[in-house]
Amino acid sequence: MGLAKRIIPCLDVDAGRVVKGVNFVDIRDAGDPVSVARQYNEAGADELTFLDITASSDNRDTIFPVVEQVASEVFIPLTVGGGVREVADVRRLLNAGADKVSINTAAVFNPELVQQASDKVGAQCIVVAIDAKRVSADDEPLKWEIFTHGGRRATGIDAVEWAQRMAGYGAGEILLTSMDRDGTKIGFNLPLTRAISDAVEIPVIASGGVGNLQHLADGVIEGGADAVLAASIFHFGEYTIAEAKAHMASQGIEVR
C-alpha cells in the first residue's frame, strides 16, 4: 500500500464559467466553477484541473476570482492552466489559490520560462503540458512530436526529448495529451504515455481519449501514468468518480 493513482477531472473555463456543461444530478448551476468543484470534491476526485480557454484578452483576468473562490471552499489540490506566459502569471495564479500551474505553449516558445518559474516557486508547483501527435508512418518506429495551437501546428520537437528537457528544467509533473486521441473516446495513446513515463523521473498525467473506465486503468497499467485526467466521461454523468475508482481498484490499482 502506498501512493494512490489519481483521478483528475478537467474543466474548461471560459470568461469565468465552466463550459461544455457538466451534467450532475444535484448541481444548482452547471456553469459555476465553485459548484462544480464542490461536487467533484464530494464525489471523491483526487485533484481538479481548470483550463482557462478564454480567447478574448478583455476577459483574461476572469480566471483569478474563479481560482480564489474555488480555493476558498474546496480543499483538494487545484491545477490551473491556459494563457500562462510569464513568471508573473504563475505567481498570480498561485497567490489566487492554485496549487500548481500548467504551462503549455509558452514553454515551447520560451523553455526558460519553466526554469525561471520552477526556481522561483518550486518544481512541485509547475506542470508542463505537452500536446503530442504521432508523426511516424505505420512501418516506421513510433515517433511523436510536440504540436501547438490545439494540435494544428507542428514544431518539429520530439515529444520524448522535450519531456526530458522540461523535467531537467524543473517541471514537477507532465500533463501529456495525445492530440491523436483527444475527443475520440477510444482510449489513451498508451505507447506514447509509456514512452514519456519511462523517460522521466517526474509524475506523468495521461490525457486525451478516455471513453470508458478500462481506458483509465490501461493508462496506469500499460501507459505507466501516475494520474489520469478525463473530462466528458465524468461531466456528462456517464460514470462517477466512485465507479472509476472501483474499476481501477478491481484491476489492482491503488486508489484513494
Binding site: 501512493l3 517526474i202 509524475p203 506523468v204 501516475d226
Partner: peptide, 11 residues
Amino acid sequence: RLKVPHMGWNI
C-alpha cells in the same frame, strides 16, 4: 521505480 516529486495522496 517511484516518481519524484512524491506527488499525491499517500497513507
